[in-house]
Design a protein around this nucleic acid. Structure first.
Lengths: 253, 253
DNA sequence: AAGTGGTCTAGACCACTAC
DNA sequence: TAGTGGTCTAGACCACTTG
């Protein structure tokens, strides 16, 4: 009985516009409908239309200048937060087939670093999952993820080679509210090098990721190593918005 | 005669709140002033106060839940876009002394890649500036920046070892509206290794950056190499906002 | 000059939280 | 139950762009 309260009007309008823009309408610098046109069309006040546009502007979908009609901001795939979190969703969105080879999935005592990241006492039991993530069959990333023990049953009952854990968690009512990623460059250690099929010492993008629920509880802490020749991150920012995305490295050697 | 139009009311309110939060008021989960309190205090309508809060929420400074007072979102230094763009501003914000060693500053013909990034015809003249950027005296980044020729007089009249070009451009009326950063890991080439004082093949964070004015004209295209052991990037995202920052690498080896 | 987005007001009702 | 934020309306004036 999860009562769905109907979404607000401005949301509906924003979604309609976003979909039309994705579909290629408003392409060639022609300008979007004006606020007055939309408020007539939807039978709402101008304030509601402005609220819809505020949301689109914050996510980088449209730009605006006083006096002129709003413009659709082309190209940039509106990567949602879930797309940045889920390897599977991301892979599918760029037309690759996601896959993974499970290396480990076991409960262990936590080290100081892991315990701190998960807000637990050092030595607490945590679930440690190690997977090599594949893009259409070739290794792209080594994922080292730690979950608090309470999530262990949920995770271990999944098919780690095939399922998207992120999607599974969402379906089970674990909502991912906020994530923090730290991105740096490190050399491949022998062990990582072998798993990713690169030379020892080869440059890797190492990201650590900490994801929390709306109430602040930590859902996962993950240390990921991307092949430096396979993946890059894109940050796009303006006064109005900042967006981030993961992309396959262009001109990869 | 640059007439300063006074900023809107909601901006003033948002700035006041942001500064109070930075200063540590509203620290211990006590909740911010309510909308009605603020509208009384400033003598404005509730809509104006909400506009101020919308801005703070979009930049990740406050969170809100229906029914409860808004909360300040601790710690995260509100890095503005300019702080991500300007090495000097960033260095000062983390308490380091910015510096640079100029390597090259000359006009040259553009390669295909540079010309494409600057929206010019291949072979057009561009200004090429190469600098080693220092954090309190030690090399942290090699910066390879290309400017369209029209900006050459402005750039060349600066003291490249000391001035912040970003700040100089802003003062001269060149407003930086949008930037796109691509971040990946690459091995140090012999030449770069020597300039950054690292071993050949050492992992570096390479970012390419393309910055545009409000009218879409490209201001700069830059290829930067950060020492992998010195610098990291942080991306923090939630449903409400995404922010990015550059940080010095923790536990650097 | 007409149209557009930016700012602001003064109300209203609702869903939710805190006590 | 009182207070809070979320949604929405119907107006107003202004700054700016476009013809």
């Amino acid at each position: 009985m999860t009562e769905k309260t109907s979404p607000p009007l401005y949301r509906r309008i924003a979604d309609d516009l976003a979909e039309a823009i994705r579909g290629g309408a408003y392409g060639g610098g022609r300008g979007l409908p004006s606020e007055s046109e939309l408020s007539r069309a939807y039978g709402v006040s101008r304030g509601t239309v402005r609220q819809a546009f505020a949301q689109l502007r914050a996510s980088g979908v449209v730009s605006s200048r006083q006096g002129a009609r709003r413009q659709a901001q082309g190209e940039q795939r509106l990567q949602s937060m879930s797309e940045l979190l889920s390897f599977s969703q991301w892979a599918r969105s760029i037309g690759e087939v996601p896959g993974s080879r499970e290396i480990t999935a076991a409960t262990t005592g936590s080290t100081a670093v892991v315990a701190a990241a998960l807000d637990l006492a050092e030595g607490s039991q945590v679930l440690h999952v190690v997977r090599v993530r594949l893009l259409s069959g070739s290794p792209a990333m080594l994922e080292d993820t730690y979950y608090p023990e309470r999530l262990a049953p949920l995770i271990l009952s999944a098919d780690l080679a095939r399922d998207s854990l992120t999607e599974r968690l969402e379906r089970q009512g674990v909502h991912l509210e906020e994530a923090e990623h730290h991105i740096r460059a490190v050399p491949a250690t022998p062990c990582v090098a072998e798993l990713l099929d690169v030379a020892e010492g080869a440059p890797l993008l190492r990201t650590t990721r900490r994801t929390t629920e709306p109430n602040g509880r930590v859902v996962e802490f993950s240390v990921d190593h991307y092949r430096g020749d396979a993946v890059a991150f894109v940050v796009r920012n303006s006064a109005a918005s900042t967006t981030t995305a993961r992309v396959t490295a262009p001109g990869a050697g």
